[in-house]
């Protein structure tokens, strides 16, 4: 009797402990995803309405030049942010992998920006990039009078300041991922390649980096979803300005949904962002989950 009751607790306890999380996930993640998707097909404006209007909101969304501008900014920011982070992270990881002294300390320093919130990063870089108090002022005070670095107030260049701040924050993290990947490689492979006559450059370009493909995928996925969801960094750094020049989809979605009372368009933009994330994630998950069969 006692034994069977014990078994009952063993059986129910894990399910009991996990169930609140499951309910929260189902309602607040998947439930609201479905609800938002539904709203995007209605004529909701200030308050949700449940009158279906088909793809009208999507048509309006893609007729809106601000949305197209936000999408283009996302492309510029995403490509540069992911690309530069990967290159900088990989180079730092390779340099750090050369058995240098105080590696632990250096690794921690490079990883620290990741511990900051994007709001902090954005605020600090806003000051640094501000022409009247930041880098420009400093260089001018050194005596270089003609120095100009005012990207943050230049509508054509402001998006690149977002890239700078984003890279500063995330490249240390990418370095840590790559470093873990490099450490996972059997050192005798490097020795074998040296005996085969390869120099260090060839060892990295022909063997190590190609064999780190899964690591590249992981880094790419993580950076891509940071890029697509980027909201706080832009808000803190430029507030979407000057004008709408650094608008990104997340800001567009927030402003249309909650400030301009156009819930339908906001929901439609949110669905487009979700689709973008899925478009990247699904092929990745598909390729990751089917590899064990081949191996």
């Amino acid at each position: 009797m006692l034994a069977s009751r014990k078994k009952g607790i063993d059986y129910w306890l894990p399910k009991l402990v996990v169930s609140p999380t499951l309910v929260i996930a189902l309602v607040f993640f998947y439930g609201f995803v479905l609800w938002t998707t539904f709203i995007s097909f209605t004529n909701s404006s200030f308050l949700p309405s449940y009158e279906l209007v088909g793809f009208d909101q999507y048509v309006r969304l893609f007729m809106n030049p601000r949305w197209l501008n936000a999408m283009w900014n996302l492309v510029v920011f995403g490509v540069l942010f992911i690309g530069i982070c990967m290159v900088v992270g990989l180079v730092m990881a390779i340099l750090l992998d050369q058995n240098i002294r105080a590696e632990g300390a250096i690794r921690t320093i490079y990883l620290y920006p990741m511990a900051l919130s994007f709001i902090v990063t954005g605020t600090v870089w806003k000051w640094l990039l501000n022409p009247t108090v930041g880098i420009e002022k400093f260089v001018i005070s050194l005596g270089w009078d003609s120095f100009v670095f005012d990207w943050i107030i230049d509508p054509d260049m402001a998006i690149y300041t977002v890239v700078i701040a984003g890279v500063w924050q995330a490249s240390g993290f990418v370095m840590a991922i790559f470093l873990a990947g490099l450490r996972g490689i059997d050192t005798s492979i490097i020795k074998a390649a040296q005996l085969d006559g390869a120099n260090l450059f060839a060892v990295y370009t022909r063997i190590i980096i190609p064999s780190m493909r899964p690591v590249f995928f992981s880094a790419f996925i993580m950076l891509a979803h940071i890029a697509i969801k980027s909201f706080d960094l832009v808000i803190a750094l430029t507030g979407g300005g000057p004008g709408n020049s650094t608008d990104v989809p997340a800001i567009f979605m927030y402003q249309f949904s909650f400030q301009r009372g156009q819930l339908g368009i906001g929901a439609a933009s949110a669905v487009i962002m979700l689709m973008t994330v899925l478009a990247i994630l699904v092929p990745y998950l598909y390729s990751e989950l089917r590899t064990p069969k081949n191996g």
């Binding site: 059997d186 005798s188 492979i189 020795k191 074998a192 390649a193 040296q194 005996l195 085969d196 006559g197 390869a198 120099n199 063997i207 190609p210 064999s211 493909r213």
Partner: peptide, 17 residues
């Protein structure tokens, strides 16, 4: 690389890629 030596390792050290 200049010694003209070949080596077989315990872990085989094949290039995985």
């Amino acid at each position: 690389k200049d010694r003209d030596i070949a080596m077989v390792f315990q872990s085989y050290a094949l290039y995985p890629n």
